[in-house]
């Protein structure tokens, strides 16, 4: 059984550490996530795909306390076993990225706290592969 990314064009797990892929505008330097063909700032269309940084600060957050509908959600939707998860924007050096958070307790979440990229399992596909997506975890286990 292998571990596979929810989407290799968004989350690259082929190397030693997971990386998010975004776009950088060659004209104005603005970054977006995920990869896109035009620039949100200057309307340019000369974009290059880049690996985004893996560490940043929590900028906004909430806790998802009810199971999302499936589809599209791939994770656990059983109300009796569903575990709430954090959701937030993490300010990376290039751009603020929306992501799951591994921490779901409000008293342990605070804007400005240091976060780093991590992987969380979502589901197992028909071939027995574990599908993972990206999340941010408090750095240094400082919860």
């Amino acid at each position: 059984m292998a571990r596979i990314s929810i989407d290799d064009a968004v989350l690259d797990i082929s190397g030693g550490e997971p990386r998010l892929l975004g776009s950088r505008c060659r004209a104005c330097g603005t970054h977006t996530f995920p990869v896109q063909s035009g620039c949100v700032r200057c309307s340019g269309d000369d974009m290059e795909t880049v690996r985004l940084g893996t560490r940043g600060e929590l900028w906004a957050w909430t806790v998802q306390a009810f199971p999302p509908k499936a589809p599209p959600y791939l994770g656990d939707t059983d109300r009796s076993t569903f575990e709430p998860y954090g959701v937030g924007y993490v300010q990376l050096p290039e751009v603020r990225v929306e992501a799951r958070l591994t921490e779901a307790r409000p008293e342990h979440l605070k804007n400005g706290m240091e976060m780093e990229l991590a992987l969380v399992p979502l589901a197992t596909d028909d071939d027995g592969n574990e599908i993972v997506t990206f999340a941010f975890a408090p750095s240094g286990g400082a919860t």
């Binding site: 064009a9 791939l74 799951r100």
Partner: peptide, 25 residues
Amino acid sequence: SGGRDWYGGSGLALTTQFFAMKINR
């Protein structure tokens, strides 16, 4: 975008999350 719906599939893409994050901040 050709592959899986990574956004909704990951448990993001709920409007409720946005409103909660915005007012929390």
